[in-house]
Simulated scan of single mutants.
Amino acid sequence: MTRAVYRFVDHTIRHEPAGGIVAELFCMTYGCDKSSGAQGNAEDAQDWALRHTGLNPGHELYRREFSDHARVTRAGQEPAALISRSSHDCGGAAR
Rank of each mutant, 00 (worst) to 15 (best):
S86K: 01
H69C: 10
E43G: 12
A81D: 00
Y30P: 08
E65Y: 07
G54Y: 14
R63N: 13
I21Y: 00
A93V: 13
S87W: 00
S84H: 02
N41A: 08
R64L: 15
A49H: 07
N56T: 11
G76H: 02
I13Q: 03
A81V: 00
S36V: 11
H15R: 07
G20A: 01
Y62D: 06
A80G: 12
G20R: 05
I13E: 01
D44C: 03
C90V: 13
V9K: 06
R71W: 00
M28N: 11
A80V: 06
I13V: 04
N41H: 04
F8P: 12
A70M: 14
A75L: 11
L55Y: 15
T53H: 12
D47W: 14
N56H: 15
G58Y: 12
D89H: 03
T12Y: 05
D47A: 10
V22L: 12
L55P: 13
I21A: 00
S87Y: 00
Q77V: 07
A23L: 08
Q39K: 14
T73S: 08
V5N: 14
I21D: 00
D89Y: 02
C27P: 11
H59R: 02
R14N: 11
F26I: 07
E60T: 11
R7G: 11
I83S: 04
E24Y: 15
C90L: 06
P79K: 02
Y62Q: 05
A4Q: 15
R7D: 13
L55A: 13
S36D: 04
I83Q: 10
G20Q: 13
V22C: 03
V22Q: 11
T53G: 05
I83D: 02
G19H: 00
F26S: 08
L25S: 02
R7L: 05
G58L: 04
A38F: 10
T29H: 05
P57I: 14
A49K: 05
P17I: 06
S67P: 08
S36E: 08
A81F: 01
Y6C: 06
A80I: 09
C27K: 04
L50V: 12
I21H: 00
H69A: 09
A38W: 08
C32R: 01
N56D: 10
M28H: 12
E65R: 07
S36Q: 01
H59A: 01
C90S: 11
P79N: 03
G76N: 10
Y6P: 09
